[in-house]
Design a protein around this nucleic acid. Sequence first.
DNA 1: GTCTATAACCGGATAGAC
DNA 2: GTCTATCCGGTTATAGAC
Lengths: 211, 211
Amino acid sequence: MSESSVVAGAVSPDAAPGETPATARGELTRARILDTALDLFRERGYDDTTMRVIAARAGVSLGNAYYYFRSKEHLIQAFYGRTHAEHLAACGPVLERERTFRNRLRGVMVAKLDTLEPYHRFAGILFKTAADPASPLHPLSEASRPVREEATALFREVVEGSTLTSAGRARSRRLVDGSVGLIDRLVAISKLPLLGRIRRQGMQLVRELEG
Amino acid sequence: MSESSVVAGAVSPDAAPGETPATARGELTRARILDTALDLFRERGYDDTTMRVIAARAGVSLGNAYYYFRSKEHLIQAFYGRTHAEHLAACGPVLERERTFRNRLRGVMVAKLDTLEPYHRFAGILFKTAADPASPLHPLSEASRPVREEATALFREVVEGSTLTSAGRARSRRLVDGSVGLIDRLVAISKLPLLGRIRRQGMQLVRELEG
DNA sequence: GTCTATAACCGGATAGAC
DNA sequence: GTCTATCCGGTTATAGAC
């Protein structure tokens, strides 16, 4: 029940959930294309990186790039898988060390920011495509399932491993710090009888929407 | 100080903020293109509606369509302007009639859902493009300024015209109803001394992030 | 100066041969 | 697995008509 369960169960970073596996050499070609793409995304952003340029720099034909990645967006999905794996690794020590809900939550969130920092520049595109319900990048899409389930498990562990009783970019970091503190207090205070009625109202709303 | 200030101050529905005005006949052509586009969006969705088809059905050349609308996304911006105008009109009676914060907020939000209902099908694309910081559709973009300021004024009026002391799709409607009730109670309860510390903490966080 | 049209460009995606 | 050839649609260049 330690965090090793989560970290150990990681999907192979570049397995590109739901995507063509491959044979020995194909796996290399695939990795080369992804590496090239992520480099280019960092350098020039997403929109200014064409599939043709990715293919060229990776030393394959355009059609071949599409053999490994069904679409340009699927490269981002692979990006998710890769950074998620890094995030899991970074969380290991934090979850090992911290026991309060507050510190565990903060540690996990700050680790995420650290992991994504090098890609800050093209973060915008992630929101854009992820917000499209039809995109394979949508958090609830089938393609996102593996990473989604792992991320869920990660947060479950944040909660379960904590006692829950105790009380990058500089602004983002401050936001995480501050928000976590607030959430922590609100969660604690929501147990007071005074708020029982409001909480029940909220819970019922959620339940109704599920049904 | 009645809501007439907001309703009266509406931008002309299709003025396409920041876009080419026009002469007599041009204005008609422009409206025809927009009508055609919105019809097509409703019928077949956004992605399946090509600029070529819009132009053809509107009886103009492709290049001509681009004379009036800088890009396909700008058609959506015009859509915002139009539905926003309808929303304002629908809000008039509500704000005239209701005086409690809760009912005013609910009325305005339900009116929005009603206004957008016919376009439910392509709502997804709105989130997608709006989430892109570089898009003219982004809520904070310069192109969005006119509608944004009017919408802000509308909500200001929801608050200012209320006493704030009293306590479509079926699920969306239920969500609005329920959420509004919750917000109302939370706003009320946040005045209790018990929550003073948390509120201050939250306010300070917001202030810091601004500075 | 306002409007309209034709032809091209560019990049994501696909078809199909090897 | 890999390539070449092509499609398709958003966008632009540009020329000319009112």
